[in-house]
Nucleic acid binder design. Structure first.
Lengths: 137, 137
DNA sequence: CTCTTAATTGCAACTTGTTTGCATTTACCA
DNA sequence: TGGTAAATGCAAACAAGTTGCAATTAAGAG
């Protein structure tokens, strides 16, 4: 939340109720949420925020680096808070859609190798697994 | 192409001109293509196939395991042929959108670890890098 | 504390990517 | 060489995400 205030201020942006509420929803979630998910949870909490505002706020939070965008083969984006959470990855069940965190990342060395080989500058990577959870096997 | 015929036949499906043409477009491409990309290339080659047929064919080819679906943070799917190509990953430039192959994958051991820790069965993974290519840096 | 103003929001409409329904066409086996 | 189920094209629907604009509001200036 401190990061939110500082980040917004640094860009001449404002701290609003929707922004606090949306970041709060993401911080409370155990797995990444779509814009529609966030919107639904806000409604459940009696916080009236338009879906469009959710989209716009997610874009802002992403630009501030407070949340990460995740793709899990669903044709939509999900977002998760970065606050107090280590860099990590996910696995998604092809049966029930359950998403679990994988608290690991073996890509430090590989990233250096990729930069050397491709001459790209690497800014980010995504690593996701897909399979079947115990219940769905 | 042999795989296409065999795979289709095994499911009581048919070998058609659109299917051949679409697989051919994917096999010729150096990077993964979206449905719209495939459609545009077919048109350029004077092959009249509806975009809907492209979508349906991509679904079939994917189910047959002849092509792989790729997500590169664009809000759309891309597809690439698997024929004669080793398992690999990609890097995409945030400036110009250029996509390059990364002919490497260090995830064998990690996959085993993930399966042990999560008790999921891992069927697939995605690993993509994002950054800036030499021209855009 | 109030005023001013630019940032933010909500609503409606739109765009883009993808899917579905259905009548017509076509691959392929008897 | 048909007959028949599979595949296609077209129109329409759907879903995720974006844009334009008038109304609202955060927050610094006075």
């Amino acid at each position: 939340m401190t990061n939110l205030i500082a980040g917004l201020r640094a860009e001449g942006r404002r701290l609003t109720r929707p922004r606090k509420a949306i970041l709060d929803v993401l911080e409370k979630s155990k797995y990444p949420l779509s814009a529609a998910d966030v919107h639904a949870r806000l409604k459940r909490e009696q916080v009236a925020v338009d879906l469009v505002t959710v989209y716009r706020t997610l874009a802002v939070l992403k630009k501030l680096g407070l949340i990460a965008q995740v793709e899990l083969g669903e044709g939509q984006f999900r977002y998760e808070s970065r606050h107090g959470r280590e860099h990590h990855h996910h696995i998604r069940c092809r049966g029930c859609g359950r998403i679990a965190d994988l608290m690991l990342c073996p890509l430090k060395k590989l990233t250096a190798l990729v930069e050397r080989e491709t001459r790209f500058t690497v800014e980010e990577h995504s690593l996701e697994f897909f399979g079947w959870c115990p219940k769905c096997q």
